[in-house]
Design a protein around this nucleic acid. Structure first.
Lengths: 357, 357
DNA sequence: TTGTACGCGTTATCAT
DNA sequence: ATGATAACGCGTACAA
């Protein structure tokens, strides 16, 4: 088959329209009917059908999604607004979102929401939103009031993922039980004999906030924290985790274990320990939260709380594409999934720490 | 200011149009002129201007990007087609792309191209393409003939990033000098006294292919490979890297160093070595390629070849948004940037390996 | 200074 | 069985 493929004009810019096809002797509306094979009630003669299809193929006709969208067809676009795509956890979430959206026939357009309180930015995000059938908020955007307002006044379904436990969101949310995760991690450490357990977390809304609160609550129940050093508030990066470790070691007495609010921080702690010659888990146990892909391949492999990403994403997408959609009446639903502790090699019995300390 | 914000109807679905605004006594075209403040030649009386602006605000008017796009306005959407968003390097590239696109006022829509030779998929990707002002191909898609054809027959600017050194792409490409990177890595290792240098790479087109070729070329110049084990071809994942290490250790004599085609594989090697009790770099030196964020925080920190991501993305975006755009005449330009070796702690002198082996 | 009319590419509802 | 025609929301040349 050495035929010339894909029709004539290459560069002339203008795309092939139904009119171009119709120019061969039929009405444009007929072309439309044939190309979309409109249901039975409207019949078309086999001959014209063949003829039109042939011409369309030769000309390389392809439908114009924008024109369709103007007529009310769904754009099959899902908007994802994420504060910091650099955050490894959210990067992973976006991956999962893209895959899940694809399964529903949707593509994902990435909104940007970096600079915190930028009004113009909110408008940008909303502009994008108009083209999307649904909006997925990755992380808590309560701080961006304007954005949230604009969004929920639009026509697209909005859903908030990983928005913590706050009850005042104007749209449905899906998240994880942070409290349960933190308590599982702490129980694990206590089961290994640890009592001086430190916490490293980011200054942030939503999930991070909830994890800190759960930590403090649990520590209070067990006699409180030995020293102020035990609570390090840093930005959510590897470097920050690495840096936090040095401060943790200054405490008297030292912590024997650290719970990090995210795996990024935990991996940073691991790296910091390596730099300072502190052996993990012999001298210090480390637990993370999220179970991002790298955590299983770190040295040593990280004990962490596994986030049910797939379930959360799947539920969120379903809400967005209108399957389990909220009818808009009453309070928006808030769904919570359970995390699961994954025990790997970054935690060990506290006795060992005592011996080597 | 306790006014009701954002105009009347919330849920009624139908968005506020210029006609709705015009209903207050002016023509729709007047509204258009005012809202887009058309250049000087067409003046508008200050009173009507104020009045229209006020009403528009009250009604919560917002422009309909799809209608604009239909009239020929750019969609400000950049399509990114990436084979495997799960690949940490490409995930990072997408981050960079989103940021760079934002700087130009563009948003990024993520196409999916997972299952290799799927025809339907090609169509999907193209469908998305119609809405985009430009298409960025992340990685080599030569295998997907149909997709490449459809793409280049569209009206959007297409640019291929990280497409290796092949000369037969129908669009401009921007990439890295893989050969230089590999030779720098090997020179570094040889400078440390290594001779038995193994290679682990993925079965793949484009960059990966070039890296393997460069390795073989260089090894031939230096007397060839000691054993077939020295070349492991695996999939591009941490796990695969981890698994490859075991096979590498079966070689007689053992390699004293390994060059991985990507950082993901290299980090896998590090993890595999940890599991098997092989000390890095004392017993084995490891070099990666890409310098993904985790490589600087691994244990030990990874010596690797730094990919000039920012430059490549910036050049690609410029090509796409029409700044340094190709005029379509003659052979499409191929731009290549130089990588840079980053020496960290996963490599050391070969003598140490000999002593401990 | 402002209003009318047309077209972008489709789909849907009329007539023929 | 098929052709004309009206939207969809917007920008703009043209008329008033």
């Amino acid at each position: 088959m050495s035929q010339v493929m894909g029709g004539g004009r290459r560069r002339p810019g203008r795309a092939v329209t139904m009119n171009d096809v119709a120019a061969a002797g039929v009405a444009q509306s007929t072309v439309s009917r044939i190309l979309n094979d409109t249901p039975a009630p409207i019949p078309v003669s086999p001959e014209t059908r063949e003829r039109v299809l042939k011409i369309a193929r030769e000309l390389g006709y392809r439908p114009h999604p924008i024109a369709r969208a103007l007529r009310g067809a769904p754009t099959m676009l899902l908007g994802a607004i994420v504060r910091d795509i650099t955050d490894p956890f959210f990067a992973g979430a976006v991956e999962a979102l893209v895959l899940e959206a694809k399964a529903h026939g949707y593509s994902v357009v990435l909104g940007h929401a970096r600079a915190a309180e930028d009004e113009a930015l909110a408008l940008t995000a909303v502009l994008e939103a108009r083209q999307c059938d649904g909006i997925v908020l990755l992380g808590d955007f309560r701080a961006e009031q304007r954005l949230v307002e604009d969004l929920s006044s639009g026509h697209a379904h909005v859903v908030g993922l990983w928005h913590g436990t706050s009850r005042d969101h104007p749209f449905p949310t899906v998240g994880v039980d942070n409290r349960a995760g933190v308590r599982a991690a702490l129980a694990h450490l206590r089961g290994l004999g640890h009592e001086r357990i430190a916490f490293v977390g980011a200054e942030s809304l939503g999930d991070q906030h909830d994890r800190l609160a759960a930590y403090q609550e649990s520590m209070d129940e067990h006699g409180g924290m030995p020293s102020s050093c035990f609570l390090q508030r840093v930005s959510n990066t590897i470097e920050a985790g690495s840096g936090a470790l040095a401060l943790l070691l200054e405490a008297e007495p030292r912590p024997t274990a650290v719970l990090a609010a995210t795996d990024a921080l935990a991996l940073g702690l691991l790296h910091g320990a390596y730099q300072l010659g502190v052996r993990v888990p012999d001298e210090l146990s480390v637990v993370g939260f999220d179970d991002i892909p790298w955590s299983s391949a770190s040295v040593p492999p990280l004990t962490t709380v596994k986030m049910p990403i797939a379930e959360i994403i799947a539920t969120g997408v379903a809400l967005c594409v209108g399957e389990g959609a909220w009818d808009g009446e009453g309070a928006p639903p808030q769904q919570v999934f359970q995390p699961q502790l994954i025990e790997r090699l970054s935690t060990a019995r506290a006795e060992q720490a005592a011996l080597s300390g």
